[in-house]
Design a protein around this nucleic acid. Structure first.
Lengths: 193, 193
DNA sequence: ATTAACATACCGTCCAGACGGTTGACGTAC
DNA sequence: GTACGTCAACCGTCTGGACGGTATGTTAAT
């Protein structure tokens, strides 16, 4: 049968990351390793076996966060869509996906993101991904001004959710539809021209 | 002559807040009171005289930040502008003001903002201001969709600067002009209709 | 003299990380 | 198939230092 890891290391690693995210959301970046370990049902020694330092734990969190982000975008890529702006549309649909639930919901909590970005080392890593996403979106075939606007709005969603909580469904749908319209050349033009 | 405060309490208070912001940017929210006090040229006892606890210091930081934000918007309010969207335009011009310098620049550093928002208590206060700004902008006489889009983009600027650094001048100007155009009913329409 | 504005010394707690152990899975040899 | 070596996965404890906050002095303005 499938290789069952000895004592399921991967499982505990996941549990540790989930616990860290949970604790981060409620306690901010000042969480202690003890709390995370306890929450994950592991001793502190066990935690330090998987992440040799607190920074490494945070780095792992950042990696997990970005991996989930990439995966979410990938999920929302429409195979039937071959027109310019398809990647933008995937980003938009991923950002406004309201069907996420369970553990995944934790990782889309803006408070977790804020706590993560407050850690200088994490911020450094996030910047690298930031420029990658930027270049990918730029190569999506849309007018630069449209990409510019869409990117800023998507970024803004995080900040807005952090400051005002998640908006009601109607507003979210309006925002999403405006953005999706911006990805269609037939949609209302916004760039000066 | 003008009331010179005894031993210039106001001055040291400012110095403490500036030092806290500086330390916050480089060290994240785990900054210690000792570091802040040292940086401000004050003993820890002196710090605790002005801010009786660490939370109070953070609360003071948040208050200062929001006060500076309000002041910046106020500065960019055009008295000669009486048309709908004047408050939105002030927000936009404030967000894209590149002439800020010196101490003020520190307070417009997104890393400071991120570190602040990671503190749960600060986040709570920020939320109150968030809904206030929102209602003010809604009463600015513009189409709701336009306000929606503009607000999101302005919020997004913080996140973008945090993740990618400040964009070059050309891009900033383009973004600003797009937004300013959105505040004019004669500008290109974006709302479905 | 009184009070605000600091400084100094100190205490109790918390916490990151080190360290030495223990347990269980897996291969290997017989 | 069983005894054994080995290595990753994990546990529990300890410690040195950092850190928030208190308690108490000291100085300057009014």
């Amino acid at each position: 049968m499938g290789t069952v890891l000895q004592r399921d290391a991967e499982r505990t690693r996941r549990a540790l990351l989930d616990a860290a995210a949970t604790a981060l959301r409620t306690l901010g970046p000042s969480v202690s390793l003890d709390v995370v370990a306890l929450q994950a049902g592991v001793s502190k020694g066990g935690l330090l076996h998987h992440f040799r330092s607190k920074d490494e734990l945070f780095a792992g969190l950042a990696g997990e966060w970005m991996a989930r982000f990439d995966a979410a975008v990938q999920t929302h890529l429409d195979p039937a869509d071959a027109e310019p702006g398809r990647l933008c549309r995937a980003h938009i649909r991923a950002a406004f996906d309201d069907t996420v639930t369970g553990d995944d919901q934790l990782w889309s909590d803006p408070a977790v993101l804020a706590a993560l970005l407050a850690v200088p080392e994490v911020l450094r890593r996030a910047r690298e991904s930031g420029v990658r996403w930027r270049s990918e979106l730029s190569a999506d075939g849309l007018h630069p001004d449209r990409v510019l606007l869409i990117s800023r709005v998507l970024d803004g969603m995080w900040m807005t959710e952090l400051l005002e909580g998640r908006a009601d469904l109607d507003e979210r749908h309006r925002t999403r539809d405006i953005l999706l319209g911006l990805t269609r050349d037939t949609g209302p033009m916004i760039a000066a021209e």
